[in-house]
């Protein structure tokens, strides 16, 4: 992990009609770190990701990626620069088999350009490459799971498929929108090493999460949002010790639990 800033958000503000979903949120993401973003429901976390990735136009503020301004560009251009995201509501291509789902990102200009998926890339056979990626992300290669239609897959695999869709693009940054939610404890336990491995591969990860305990295992830094305002930012220990955070999560059993744990 270096101190170099890869993504910089300045005064991100978004209003829906009269409702302010985000209000002047500024933060930095450093190269190679895992940044956790936490906050109660409706605190603007998903809106923040939508703004960064260009799915929503920000009302005010700007996003800098490697020193270049990316806010205002369209979503596919931002993704093409290497900022990928997963969706909170999983959106696989339901009618296609799991491995065929990855054909689509592998067909994208960025995947063709970066290429090099062990003989895949521009001229390679995308089917083989996609099974390789799926194996990397935890689909058993020799079982029939990668060949099942996506609509029949259980949640755990769909979450992995979402991550695999990002990985196929060889991204610089992955913005994960609640990858742990809806999973059982054991499934989460198997996802944590996966995140750690992605970080070791040099991918910067921003995670929105409600499962604080697991998040704190992997996150280097944590930022807390509440009602669209940034409360604090710091290491997990610092954040948990903060009074404002306790107030925001007042009564939340989990915070107590995590604090004892930490």
């Amino acid at each position: 992990m270096s101190e170099e800033t890869i993504l910089k958000v300045l005064n991100a503000t978004k209003t829906f009609g009269g409702v302010t979903a985000l209000s002047r949120v500024s933060f930095e993401v450093r190269q190679g770190e895992v940044l956790g973003i936490i906050g109660p429901n409706g605190s603007g976390k998903t809106t923040l990701i939508n703004c960064i990735t260009g799915f929503i136009k920000m009302s005010e503020g700007e996003v800098m990626y490697k020193g270049k301004k990316i806010s205002g560009k369209s979503a596919h251009k931002i993704a093409d620069m290497g900022i990928t995201r997963t969706f909170q509501i999983m959106r696989p291509y339901y009618t296609l088999p799991a491995y065929k789902n990855l054909i689509i990102p592998l067909f994208a200009p960025r995947a063709k350009r970066t290429g090099g998926w062990r003989g895949g890339g521009k001229l390679g056979d995308r089917d083989t490459v996609s099974v390789d990626i799926l194996e990397e992300i935890g689909f058993e290669r020799d079982s029939f799971v990668p060949y099942k239609i996506a609509s029949t897959l259980p949640t755990g695999y769909l979450k992995r498929l979402e991550l695999a869709r990002c990985l196929a693009l060889k991204p610089e940054i992955i913005l994960c929108d609640e990858v742990f939610s809806g999973l059982s404890m054991s499934e989460i336990a198997s996802m944590v090493p996966l995140i750690e491995r992605l970080q070791m591969d040099g991918i910067t990860i921003v995670m929105i999460e409600h499962r604080l305990r697991e998040l704190f295992q992997v996150a280097n830094r944590v930022m807390v949002l509440n009602f669209g305002v940034k409360l604090v930012e710091g290491t997990p220990e610092e954040v948990m010790a903060d009074e404002k955070v306790k107030e925001a999560y007042f009564g939340s059993q989990e915070v107590e639990e995590v604090m004892n744990y930490a």
């Binding site: 799915f55 369209s74 993704a79 990928t84 969706f87 291509y93 339901y94 009618t95 995947a111």
Partner: peptide, 15 residues
């Protein structure tokens, strides 16, 4: 077919 099923995910793939 992916564009028909789910255009947001296609956009998120940089297309």
């Amino acid at each position: 077919r992916a564009v028909m099923d789910n255009d947001q995910a296609v956009r998120a793939s940089g297309m």
